[in-house]
Design a protein around this nucleic acid. Sequence first.
RNA 1: GGGCCAGUAGCUCAGCGGUAGAGCAGGAGACUCUUAAUCUCUUGGUCGUGGGUUCGAAUCCCUCCUGGCUCACCA
Length: 529
Amino acid sequence: MSSGHEAAFWADEEVKLLQPGRPHVVRDSKTPSGPVPISGLRGPIISDALFRTFKANALDVRFVYTIDDYDPMDSQSMKERAGMAAHMGKPLCMIPSPDPSVGTDFADYHATRFIALFAGLGITPEFHRMRDLYRSGALDKQIDLVLRNAETIRAIHKRVANVDHPEGWLPVAVICENCGRIGTTLATDYDGTTVAYECKPDYVEWAKGCGHKGRLAPFKGNAKLLWNEQWCAQWDHFGVTYEEGGKDLLTAGGSRERSNEIYREVWKRDPPPGLQHEFFTFGGKKMASSKGIGAEAVEIVAIYPPEVVRFLMLRTHPKRHLEFDPAGMTLPRLMDEYDRAADAYRGDEESDLGKTWRLSQVSPTPDAPGFRIRFTTVASWLQIPSIKPEAEAEKEKGARLTDAELRDLHRRVELARAWLERWAPDEAKFEVLERTPDVELTPEQRRYLSAIRALIGTVHDAGEMQNQLYEAAKQVGLLDAKGNPSQDAFAAIYLAFLGKPNGPRAGWLLLSIDPELVRRRLDELGRAP
RNA sequence: GGGCCAGUAGCUCAGCGGUAGAGCAGGAGACUCUUAAUCUCUUGGUCGUGGGUUCGAAUCCCUCCUGGCUCACCA
């Protein structure tokens, strides 16, 4: 418990918001209107971390995740795609799937792709689809309540958000019986059983209604509540007591505030509390799913180990914005920090960083972290063909790796491979040059390169090679002020083969290159120019 | 225009009322194997600005500046 860290960890702070001795429900949701950027995982991972923390604090809690697949297609970026224009305004679950082998319809396709990531990340909520809730009539009671209080709700929209809906407006969207659109209909005149509606051509900018007028019962899936009212209906239906969210929704005068007011006035209940999380930025700019490398959640999760994805989301307080650009040194930094968190956990499980490490694990009850190799070291190893990571790691540990450690190593190897290929800056990469580079060498350096030629093909152990290189430098007289071999000696090797003055340990490097090439190169550069 | 977040060592950030911290980078040294290897030590900041509260503020309050995001239609 008390460990000297009295400043409360953010997740522990949230525990105080929940009343003990009664059931609790944490909720999160996603509208499956397209590919989800990596930033879309921040909410689910935060919610899951809180869910775990609540449970760990002996609260009776469920985690509910809803898929808002009855919402209308209104995404501008989608409208420009081939074949999509005709579907604008239809419920997401009534639009054809881009790939039927993945999902049965548009919503199912995108939801499936996204949700498929959850289990691997250790996120295990109950999933509910809005289409099922509506069609089964599970929300009919709430729909009726909303319709009977339409005037009150209209006033709240006006007061809280300054949104003026026409008189007689009802906060439901009927699915047009003629064209199937749900985003274009205006409903009026609830008589306790049915509503009148009109599918208006110019009701919204992003879709064109067909002009049909009709009357039907807005239950059993014939209609859906508008966003704010649907939110309340879900809180009511599931008994939600905690819900965090992005700041796009939780801003003053924003959507959540409208829903909160409606819940208070119409349902006569307090809305659930919840953190407002900040967004990701990508290179200082807002992350866009459509463009930008590595921005899609599916892609990052395929490459990053799950605990690293969780750690990325949890190490920064939810209320702070998170800069994430997979390119460059982002990943090595993240991995170093992750390792530090593991050390913190070993030192004190209840330290903030220790807690963050634990919440980052896929299992809520993880084993203690074991021996691991620093990420940048693994990345270097990969670029020296003669190094076998497993053997090298065992040498470094001084003992056999456990199964878990071996798995961790392999994951790091895969991650480093992807990083080198896609994101690493040039400084982190080296490559043996096929052709002799045009480099400046001193006469001593040239003598040195000539001197080590004899080692090639005769010394086969990398460690021994390293020693011999060292000795050769002494013999040639490449010494620094203290009589030790100077940096110039090794720089000559790096320049000769990599074209830059530094690189991986020279003994290992030389042995990993074809001996013929090494001899030729040494001959060529060993001569006076 | 409303809201949120940030501005602390070269870089990334932690600290959030009690004599300025970490990692990396930089510097020095050790290991009779240089390094992007290990270990030890170390340089470096008047904590964005101006006020206020306090015995005492990076830390609380107010002003302002800078940068970013977000809502002002729908979801």
